[in-house]
Design a protein around this nucleic acid. Structure first.
Length: 337
DNA sequence: AATCCGGGGCC
DNA sequence: GGCCCAGGATT
């Protein structure tokens, strides 16, 4: 990659011809871009689109989310994962609403809760034309291949190198297009497993391609053993209602979400015959879940009865949605809302 | 620097 | 069935 100017232009030309029409590419409203970028953190475009549309229908401006009850926006986020993002987004919305306007500089944007280096660079370039290069999973992969970087892209030294390269490549006159172009290249052409090199605007000067290393790079180390766990969930019914417990606000995951009780939490419940099993993975935990219909006397502390029609407006853990979907005679609860 | 946080789609 | 995704916060 000798001629950075040429490479940058080739990328921008390719992007102009190949860019996907995505909902957040039809606006430069920083609030909408913030919502999209937070949802896109570690989450694929296809998964985000329906959530993005629905979320912004409810909260078209920062002040709308700022005033929303937690259970309401969590229910709108349920199924998307990484729920701390939603809480941080509300905190950010409150900062913005209180200021009266969206912060304009990179540092001020970076200071918003839930906004790190990537998101601050994305917003400041896309909405305000500031020349900050983004460094996400796509950019790491594209640049590691283009420069035949053989170090682990998880290591900080390699990331610093690639960040500098991204910043050198960035066309300061068109930071918004450049950032989106290089991410688009990673998302649609420079794929992790089967890079589509024939379609790549950088095919002529990609070092990995030249060396025949496009399938070996980037190098990504450090994977850890998944933990296998078995869980027994109870569907306790009484007079057409089901028993749920709410996770505490201080719990590390799924705080504030409602879920079915585990058998070990209700030792006194009378259990029926198993309704079936399913698997569910969260981060490094692989659960095998067996579901039992059950009956119990009264709701223990921390539990509440819910009518089936109430569940839709509730932040329900996906594991609970899957378990409820297993039951034959129930009104269907959408597994992926 | 390491670890945790969800969930799903794709090869 | 493993891998990866428009990462960030916490320790």
């Amino acid at each position: 990659m000798q001629n950075l100017r040429l490479a940058s232009k080739q990328l921008l030309d390719w992007y102009a011809a190949s860019r996907r029409d995505l909902p957040w590419r039809r606006t430069r409203d920083p609030w909408r871009i913030l919502v999209s970028e937070v949802m896109l953190q570690q989450t694929r475009v296809a998964a985000v689109i329906p959530y993005y549309e629905r979320f912004l229908q409810h909260y078209p401006e920062a002040k709308d989310l700022a005033a929303a009850p937690e259970q309401e926006f969590l229910a709108l986020w349920a199924g998307l994962g990484y729920y701390a993002r939603a809480r941080n987004l509300q905190r950010a919305a409150r900062v913005i609403a209180e200021r009266g306007e969206f912060p304009v500089g990179f540092e001020e944007i970076r200071d918003l809760p839930g906004v790190g280096d990537y998101t601050a660079a994305a917003i400041s370039s896309i909405c305000f034309g500031l020349p900050h290069a983004v460094l996400d999973g796509n950019v790491l992969r594209v640049l590691a291949r283009a420069g035949a970087e053989k170090g682990d892209i998880g290591s900080s030294t390699v990331r610093v190198r690639l960040r500098e390269q991204a910043q050198r490549l960035l066309d300061p006159r068109r930071p918004a297009d450049f950032n989106q172009a290089i991410m688009e290249l990673g998302a649609t052409v420079c794929l992790p497993k089967n890079p589509q090199c024939l379609l790549c605007p950088w095919r002529e000067h990609c070092a990995a391609k030249t060396m025949g290393l496009e399938h070996e790079l980037p190098v990504k180390l450090s994977k850890r053993e998944p933990v296998k766990l078995a869980i027994e969930l109870l569907v306790v019914e009484k007079e057409g209602r089901v028993l749920l417990r709410q996770r505490g606000p201080a719990e590390s995951r799924l705080a504030g979400f409602w879920e079915l009780p585990e058998a070990r939490d209700l030792p006194s419940a009378q259990r029926g015959e198993s309704a079936g099993t399913f698997k569910h993975s969260i981060t490094r935990h692989d659960y095998t879940i067996e579901v039992y219909p059950a009956a119990a006397g009264k709701a223990p502390k921390g539990f509440r009865w819910f009518g089936w029609e109430e569940l839709e407006a509730l932040p329900l853990a996906t594991m609970t949605r899957k378990a409820l979907a297993l039951l034959p005679t129930r009104p269907s609860i959408p597994v992926s809302s």
